[in-house]
């Protein structure tokens, strides 16, 4: 038995299923080097991603160990901004596929010494790292690093400033599809601080592309100008946005927004925008509430609603995050 066939024989049926995926979407993923945002993903690629994530989710819950799908690959988690949950989600995803993972919390090391993100990237690329999972507080930093080093490494954007967080949008989309087979024509509300939200932007690109009717609500001081040019309907108050909605994505409110004078007080925010069971009654029958986390309980969402297993998808999102990130890593990095 050759080494290769030995490896295949050791794989689970799910892993083999993943390898057998085919179709135009699979080919586009093979030709793709980076995942910078949902903006440039084709519908074929999205369908393939969902199929792959479905298999990855079964892998996760089958009790099987790491599969030798990315054993030759090294992935660096480059987090210039703290994020325990996104980083551990990516780390788990990579390890379940057999990849080597290194974690770099750079906020405290080389940047403090004056090294640029391009320098840090070059250093890691020189160590033959295959892919960067990068989180940075500046919009456009993922595109920038892809422009500088994209011929040597694959870039996966794990959040760049206010611009994009594609894997969060993909896991939100995957979670929605588990509830109802398609988002086409579904009313989906995104509520809260839109201006500073990469989650909102990546979701708007993805959900409008897939035919959802996306409605936005947030304090006018936290909704960026000309937002409707992205193909969404913008409301000031919460109620018209969630009325008849199938999904409500509640965004985290950063407490510093009050200090910046963007909202008068937390109490006022609660009064107008906090999601609770009473407001949820305005939404469609069986509507679900989602949140990218971490939640400010009783600020943007009530304690009771956040923990209502029937109405809240928050923990499902977290679990699906690992499956979706496995799918992304596999589709981008499998040889």
């Amino acid at each position: 038995m050759s080494e290769h066939s030995a490896l295949v024989a050791s794989m689970s049926s799910h892993a083999r299923e993943l390898q057998k995926l085919s179709g135009p979407g699979v080919d586009s993923w093979k030709n793709r080097r980076h995942l910078l945002d949902t903006k440039d993903l084709s519908t074929d690629e999205l369908q393939t991603l969902v199929r792959a994530a479905t298999i990855c989710k079964e892998m996760m819950h089958s009790g099987e160990g790491p599969q030798p799908l990315l054993t030759s690959r090294t992935i660096a988690n480059l987090f210039y901004e703290n994020s325990t949950r996104t980083r551990s989600s990516f780390e788990l995803a990579a390890k379940r596929l057999g990849a080597t993972v290194i974690n770099l919390d750079i906020a405290s090391s080389s940047v403090a010494k004056g090294e640029t993100i391009v320098d840090t990237g070059r250093t890691l690329a020189a160590m033959a790292v295959d892919a960067f999972v990068q989180r940075h507080n500046c919009s456009g930093s993922a595109m920038q690093i892809a422009r500088e080093l994209g011929d040597r490494v694959h870039i996966i954007n794990a959040g760049d400033g206010w611009n994009g967080h594609p894997t969060q949008a993909l896991l939100d989309y995957f979670t929605m599809l588990e509830v109802r087979g398609s988002v086409k024509g579904a009313k989906i509300a995104i509520v809260g601080d839109i201006t500073h939200s990469r989650v909102a932007r990546s979701n708007m690109w993805l959900l409008t592309k897939m035919g959802a009717d996306v409605h936005i609500a947030g304090p006018p001081t936290l909704v960026p100008p000309e937002l409707s040019s992205l193909g969404v309907t913008v409301h000031n108050k919460l109620e018209p946005a969630i009325e008849g909605a199938s999904f409500i994505i509640v965004l985290r409110l950063q407490l510093e927004r009050q200090k910046q004078g963007l909202i008068p007080s937390i109490g006022e925010y609660r009064r107008v925008y906090r999601m609770d069971h009473a407001r949820l009654k305005l939404a469609a029958e069986g509507a679900k509430v989602m949140h990218p986390g971490p939640m400010n309980r009783d600020l943007e969402i009530t304690h009771a609603l956040a923990d209502d297993a029937e109405k809240s998808l928050v923990l499902t999102q977290v679990g699906n995050g690992v499956a979706v990130r496995m799918a992304v890593l596999y589709l981008l990095l499998a040889r």
Partner: peptide, 13 residues
């Protein structure tokens, strides 16, 4: 410049 593109790029205008 504050405009649709600044909104799209996630940059403060």
């Amino acid at each position: 410049h504050e405009c649709a593109l600044s909104t799209e790029l996630g940059l403060q205008g």
